[in-house]
Design a binder for these strands. Structure first.
Length: 573
DNA sequence: TACTGGTGCGCG
DNA sequence: AAAGCGCGCACCAGTA
């Protein structure tokens, strides 16, 4: 194929199949190729030696089949995710063309696990609604996005955000394809230990039945259904336990023989229903847990998950995460990511100084701001979440005196939100505007005939929104830092030499010979790696955190220390 | 039968 | 019952 190496290759569908548009560094299209054979082979051929940035409507739709065929790509531009960022970003001067392209507001296409093999042939599958599929639509949208970028204030930040977001989309697809190594036997043994042996269909585990019997006995009500909140509440009140709810916080404050077994029952029931044998059957196959990650599924830019409860795995079950033979796990999380990010955003030297080293909360105590680590923690969380009462709210003023720059940043974000404005993360992701109902309520409270109820509701909603925007800037920027970390680690891992495939795990050819990301949870990653690379991977993960910090905050001296362990030595259980 | 809202609890 | 942000999922109860 003659011609220059394209900087961008847009993939999309046309009447006669899949077509690629080749764009130069200026974004000018100079050729189109119809892809007659296997898409995976064509992509693979174009990936080396000079990897283009693949432009496609929706990463899971295009990349999952490529991964299934054994092809990885280095970089992409996800049009759907980028559209959502640019459409709303405060940094974009003129987003009207993007806003008008409503077809790109489509929800992410979340596939069922059973549909994964079917996606192998993307041309044949009937799929739920997603963004446009045609090449022409993709080329047009890409042009709109480039135009929006060139007119944007601080386009460098937005370009960084789009690159990080798109890298995240690749990583989400790869995480799903690789899976988290999961030892079903360990999980089963753990369940049996806590709940009793796996019950027959229709029955409850023995430990649950026993606890339930003790509750019913203590309540003198042999028929009460413990899963029914109204029934349980009535039964509790009948024996003098006057609670407003059945949550364990409130129950724990009462002294009655029914309380202990009830709390025990709730704990067991949670494990059984959320992560019991049914979960194991549905979500773990061939030694892998494969959750569906949803990049940017949260308004702040955090990832969400759909199915499998990937982001809510109880810490207890971490014991079932086991590397394959000859492999190990590098598990790393950032200590106190959000306050560190806040220090960087606000250029708050004092907060950054307190954060230097491993424990930011200890640093705050050493600075004499508060007297205990526990106080430092609730005060800081309270400041970022908008606490006004309780221990947390009481301590916030001390924090405000000690770290005025950082606190002003979150206070300003809250004020903007209360007034109906929007706020942005460090790289330019902007919060959604207030809802129509919110705005109406604020207007109504200002009317001459407004009632007390109108006014108090408007004030409450304003404060609620203020807490949201206050937290948005911090949580969203932390998500950006994490994406930068992930993307850096991913790139560096790809440079490590593959190892012999003798002990190839069941994760497919793409991931059987190389270290790969296996899990991600807001401020934590797990890398599954051949033993030979464990130390190199640990170094990459650490360096990645430092590089992410520099990418976002340049020379500003805030560090991002990791708690890092190489499993199985110290896997938390 | 399918939905929606409320409750409760797991994670960061 | 959290106080103070962001989620997903299971279950129940009420409704269509």
């Amino acid at each position: 194929m003659p011609g220059p190496d394209p900087s961008w290759i847009v993939l999309g569908r046309a009447d006669d199949g899949i077509v690629a548009a080749l764009l130069d560094g200026e974004g000018i299209e100079f050729a189109r190729d119809r892809i007659d054979g296997e898409l995976a082979a064509w992509v693979s051929g174009r990936e080396a030696p000079h990897a283009p940035r693949w432009v496609w409507a929706d990463t899971p739709a295009w990349y999952a089949p490529l991964l299934a065929a054994g092809v990885r790509v280095a970089r992409c531009h996800d049009l759907r995710l980028s559209h959502a960022i640019l459409r709303d970003s405060e940094l974009v001067a003129s987003a009207s063309a993007l806003r008008a392209a409503r077809e790109w507001d489509a929800a992410p296409r979340v596939e069922e696990p059973a549909a994964l093999p079917a996606l192998f042939d993307i041309s044949e599958v009937e799929r739920p609604a997603g963004p446009p599929e045609s090449l022409d639509a993709a080329v047009l949208e890409f042009a709109r996005q480039r135009a929006a970028l060139t007119q944007a204030r601080d386009p460098a930040r937005l370009r960084l955000l789009l690159a990080a977001e798109s890298a995240g989309a690749l990583i989400a697809a790869e995480l799903r394809a690789a899976g988290l190594p999961w030892d079903a036997a360990v999980h089963d043994a753990l369940l049996a230990d806590v709940l009793g042996p796996r019950p027959t269909v229709g029955a409850l585990p023995a430990r649950m039945e026993e606890a339930a019997a003790r509750v019913r006995d203590a309540l003198g009500d042999p028929a009460v259904h413990l899963e029914s909140q109204p029934q349980l509440l009535r039964a509790l009140r009948r024996v003098g336990i006057h609670v407003e709810s059945t949550s364990r916080w409130e129950l724990a404050e009462h002294d009655h023989p029914a309380i202990a077994p009830l709390l025990e029952y709730k704990k067991l029931a949670r494990l059984y229903t959320a992560n019991g044998w049914a979960w194991l059957d549905e979500w773990v196959h061939e030694g892998r847990f494969r959750p569906v990650y949803v990049p940017a599924g949260v308004v702040t830019g955090r990832w969400a998950s759909s199915g499998g409860g990937a982001l809510q795995l109880p810490r207890m079950l971490r014991a079932a995460v086991r590397a394959d033979p000859g492999w190990t796990l590098v598990v790393a999380d950032v200590a106190q990511l959000e306050p560190r990010v806040l220090a960087g955003m606000a250029s708050d030297e004092r907060l950054a100084a307190a954060a230097r080293g491993r424990d930011l909360y200890a640093g705050i105590v050493e600075g004499g701001v508060v007297s205990t680590r526990a106080e430092a923690k609730v005060a800081l969380l309270g400041a970022m979440y908008g606490a006004t009462t309780g221990d947390s709210g009481r301590l916030v003023p001390q924090l405000r005196r000690a770290f005025p720059r950082a606190m002003r940043l979150v206070d300003d974000a809250a004020t903007a939100g209360e007034r109906g404005g929007v706020v942005s993360t460090w790289l330019g992701r902007t919060s959604p505007p207030p809802s129509e109902g919110w705005t109406k309520a604020q207007g109504r409270a200002g009317d001459v005939d407004a009632t007390d109820a109108d006014e108090s509701r408007a004030r409450r909603w304003a404060r609620d929104r203020g807490r949201f925007t206050r937290n948005f800037v911090v949580q969203g920027t932390a998500a950006e830092w994490a994406l930068a970390w992930l993307a850096d680690v991913r790139g560096r891992l790809a440079e490590l030499a593959p190892v012999g495939g003798d002990a190839a795990p069941a994760s497919g050819p793409v991931f059987s010979t190389r270290p790969h990301l296996a899990f991600y949870l807001h401020d934590e990653i797990i890398v599954h790696t051949p033993l030979a690379h464990a130390d190199a991977v640990a170094a990459i993960v650490r360096e990645g955190a430092a590089r992410a910090g520099r990418l976002l905050f340049g020379d500003f001296p805030v560090d991002f220390p990791l708690d890092l362990r190489i499993s199985p030595a110290a896997e938390k259980g």
